[in-house]
C-alpha cells in the first residue's frame, strides 16, 4: 500500500516537473527571462519541499513507532502495571534478564529444598528395608520388632509431610516457568520495534535515493562498508543452519579430537 502511494506521488511530482519544464522551454524560446527565473525557482522549491516532506514523513513514522512501543504494552492485566513503568527497549530487555534471573533462582531454591527431602526418604527407606528383610526372614527379636513397628509408623507419618513439601516445591517450580510467557511477549514487542525501525530506515534510504534522483544529485558511490563482525557470536540461535557453527557438544568433541584432544 505504502509503495503504491509513493509511486503515485512520484508520478505527480514528475508531471509537475514536466509541466514546469515545458513552460520553461516556452519562456526561454520567447526570451522571457523574468518568468524563466521564476520557473527555475519554483522547480527548485518543489524539489526541496518534496525532500522535506519525505524526511518529515519518515521522522513521524519513526517517532510513531517509538511512541507505540512505549505506550502499548499489551500484556496481561497483572503485568500491566509492571510493564507500563518500562519506558524503552533496553529497560524492557533488562526486565527480561531480571525475570529470567528471578525464575532461575527460584527454581534452584526449590530444587535445593526438594533434594534433601528426597535424600531423607531414600536413606530412611534403605534403613527400614534392611530391617524389613530381616523381619521377613524371621530374624528380629521381639524388642527389634517393636522398634521396627514404631519406625514404620514414624516413617509413614513423616513421608506424608515430606511428600507434601516436595509437591509444594514442584508446584513452585512449575509456576516459576511463567516467566517464559511474559518475557516472550516483551521480546516479541522488541523484535517488532526493531523490524519497524529497520523498515523505516530502509524506506529512508529509498526515499533519499529517489529524491536524489529527482534533484539530479549524484550519490557518492563510496566503498560499501562491510558490517564489522562481532567478536563473539553468542549462543547458537540458528541451530544447525550454519556450517561455521557447531550444533552441539558432539560436534565440539569431534572438532577437538580432530585437533588431537
Amino acid at each position: 500500500m505504502i509503495q503504491m502511494e509513493q509511486h503515485i506521488e512520484r508520478d505527480e511530482t514528475m508531471e509537475h516537473l514536466v509541466d514546469k519544464a515545458r513552460s520553461l522551454v516556452e519562456n526561454l524560446e520567447s526570451g522571457n527571462l523574468y518568468d524563466t527565473h521564476k520557473l527555475l525557482g519554483d522547480i527548485y522549491a518543489a524539489r526541496e519541499r518534496k525532500l522535506y516532506e519525505e524526511v518529515g514523513k519518515l521522522t513521524r513514522g519513526l517517532h510513531d513507532a517509538l511512541m507505540d512501543f512505549h505506550i502499548d504494552a499489551g500484556i496481561g492485566e497483572e503485568a500491566q502495571e509492571e510493564i507500563s513503568k518500562i519506558s524503552d527497549a533496553s529497560d524492557r530487555l533488562g526486565y527480561v534478564i531480571k525475570m529470567t534471573d528471578d525464575a532461575a533462582n527460584l527454581t534452584m531454591d526449590k530444587v535445593d529444598e526438594a533434594v534433601p527431602i528426597a535424600d531423607e526418604i531414600r536413606s530412611t527407606s534403605k534403613d527400614l528395608n534392611e530391617d524389613w528383610k530381616r523381619f521377613k526372614r524371621r530374624e528380629l527379636t521381639p524388642e527389634e520388632f517393636r522398634n521396627l513397628y514404631q519406625r514404620v509408623g514414624d516413617y509413614l507419618d513423616g513421608t506424608e509431610v515430606r511428600a507434601e513439601r516436595m509437591q509444594n516445591s514442584l508446584n513452585d517450580i512449575l509456576m516459576a516457568q511463567g516467566y517464559q510467557d511474559l518475557t516472550g511477549q516483551v521480546i516479541k514487542r522488541v523484535i517488532t520495534l526493531v523490524k519497524e525501525v529497520e523498515n523505516s530506515l530502509v524506506e529512508l534510504v529509498r526515499m533519499a535515493s529517489s529524491v536524489e534522483k529527482i534533484a539530479g544529485i549524484n550519490a557518492e558511490t563510496g566503498d560499501s562498508v562491510e558490517p564489522q563482525e562481532v567478536a563473539l557470536a553468542g549462543p547458537n540461535v540458528h541451530g544447525e543452519k550454519n556450517v561455521t557453527v557447531v550444533s552441539g557438544q558432539d560436534e565440539v568433541d569431534d572438532l577437538l579430537s580432530s585437533l588431537g584432544f
Binding site: 563473539l232 557470536a233 553468542g234 549462543p235 547458537n236 561455521t244 557453527v245 557447531v246 550444533s247 565440539v252 572438532l255 577437538l256 585437533l259 584432544f261
Partner: peptide, 13 residues
C-alpha cells in the same frame, strides 16, 4: 560457553 563457532573452539584449543 555458548560460543559455538568452529573457529572459536579452535582458538580456545
Amino acid at each position: 560457553t555458548a560460543e559455538a563457532k568452529r573457529e572459536q573452539i579452535i582458538e580456545a584449543a
